Simulated scan of single mutants.
Amino acid sequence: MFYKNLTHTPKYATLIATFTALCLAVGKLIAGIVSGSVAVLASAIDSLLDVGISIFNFFALKKSEKPANSRFNYGLGKLESLAATFEGLVIALSGVYIFYTSCVKIISSHEIESLQYSLGVMILSFCATFCLVWYLQKVAKRTNSQVIKADVMHYKVDLLSNGAVLCSLLVISISGFDKLDAILGLVIAVYIMLSAFRLIRESVLLLLDRAIDPHIFARVQEVLANAPITSYHALRTRIVGNIIFVDVHLVFHPGITLLEAHRICNTIEERIRALDTSLVWEINAHLDPYDDSEFDVILRQGKE
Rank of each mutant, 00 (worst) to 15 (best):
H215R: 11
E202C: 01
I188E: 06
L208K: 10
R201A: 08
A196D: 09
G185F: 00
E260N: 08
L250R: 01
L199N: 13
E202A: 10
L169E: 08
I256C: 12
G176P: 01
L170E: 05
R201H: 15
L250H: 05
D213K: 07
I216L: 15
V220C: 11
D181I: 02
Y232A: 04
S203H: 04
H233D: 14
Y232P: 01
L205A: 13
S195P: 01
D213S: 12
L170D: 02
I192W: 03
S231E: 08
L205H: 14
S195W: 02
N242C: 08
G241R: 06
D178P: 02
F177H: 09
V165Y: 10
F197A: 14
L208H: 08
A227E: 08
L166Y: 02
G185Q: 04
L259G: 05
I244Q: 09
I172A: 03
R210K: 13
E222L: 12
I174C: 10
E260C: 00
I200Q: 07
F217M: 10
I243D: 12
I256F: 10
V171R: 04
V220D: 04
L159H: 05
I243G: 01
I244S: 14
L199R: 07
V190R: 02
V251F: 05
S231V: 02
Y191H: 07
R198H: 14
Y232V: 01
P254E: 08
S231F: 02
I229C: 09
V220T: 04
G176N: 00
I174M: 13
F197Y: 11
I200F: 00
L199H: 09
I244M: 12
L205C: 09
A182L: 04
V251R: 13
R201P: 03
S195I: 01
F197R: 13
V240P: 05
L205F: 14
L180W: 01
G255Q: 07
I174W: 14
L180Y: 00
I216H: 15
I239P: 08
D158Y: 09
G176A: 03
F252L: 09
F252Y: 15
G255P: 00
S195K: 06
I212R: 11
T237A: 10
V165A: 15
L180D: 02
V190P: 04
R219H: 03
S168F: 11
I229Q: 09
S161A: 14
L166M: 12
L205Q: 11
A189S: 13
G241H: 06
S168K: 02
Q221S: 12
L169A: 03
R238V: 01
L258C: 11
D181P: 09
L250Q: 06
H215K: 13
H233R: 06
R219V: 00
Y155D: 09
I256D: 14
V204M: 06
D158E: 12
V190A: 04
I183N: 03
H215D: 15
L207E: 06
F217A: 15
A182G: 04
Y155F: 15
P254L: 03
I244T: 14
Q221R: 11
I200E: 01
F245M: 06
